[in-house]
Design a protein around this nucleic acid. Sequence first.
DNA 1: AATTCATTTCGTTAACTAACGAAATATATA
DNA 2: TATATATTTCGTTAGTTAACGAAATGAATT
Lengths: 119, 119
Amino acid sequence: MNFCMIEEKTKLFKSLSDSNRLRILKMLQVKPLCVCEITDVLQLATSTVSRHLSILRETGFIIEEKDGKWVNYMINSHPVDPRISSIISTLDFWIADQKIINEDKSKVIKVDRHFVCSK
Amino acid sequence: MNFCMIEEKTKLFKSLSDSNRLRILKMLQVKPLCVCEITDVLQLATSTVSRHLSILRETGFIIEEKDGKWVNYMINSHPVDPRISSIISTLDFWIADQKIINEDKSKVIKVDRHFVCSK
DNA sequence: AATTCATTTCGTTAACTAACGAAATATATA
DNA sequence: TATATATTTCGTTAGTTAACGAAATGAATT
């Protein structure tokens, strides 16, 4: 596999080409979250959220940390790709805090995995 | 149409999600080009190139200037969206000069619309 | 050991995107 | 005015992506 291919360079932008993934990144700015917490805010199927998270993880935007039966996802503080570093460190510039984002963030602050999961 | 919608924010990244569009941007760094010159380098159908150009134009990355029967496309020096300004002013950071890009640029330097068009 | 819960993977479907050629449009030239 | 050239728009097709639910996996609790 040739990682210098131009197709490889589009992956970063492809990851940011979905509004639900942008919302996830902004939510993770507030605090690390597990899949079911994100699912609760976005109101999508768990499998869909899991897929979005794996795309963001593969590109290097986020990392995962297993915690018992939960998997916590968080912003990657030390990405290999300097372009990712740049975007993460100025995320508010790239993804403005519009209405839906602020609503998501409010929900994130209140969300508790012990209540939202297993419903 | 609500331009504050989150979907609207993904458009910038969507335009950069195609390798042919990345190549076009890098080619336009060298000099303004008409559709048939770009077509000659990318080896795609004219209609396909035209479509890529209109996507880049709609997002604000490039502008067009009519010149007789030709339409010259060039990098937009004064984009409205500061994110576009940022990407354009540091384009080499976002899209590295890998092999294919350098080959494209060499072709761009040599290309002459009076020879490549009408074939 | 069996059950429960969180997550991932898989298979399917609907929507979107990029490609092409053909037809339409626009401009210059004969 | 007719023709040639450059480009755009349209219609179609193939490939990709995002959504879902069901099934599989993995870890904690009973």
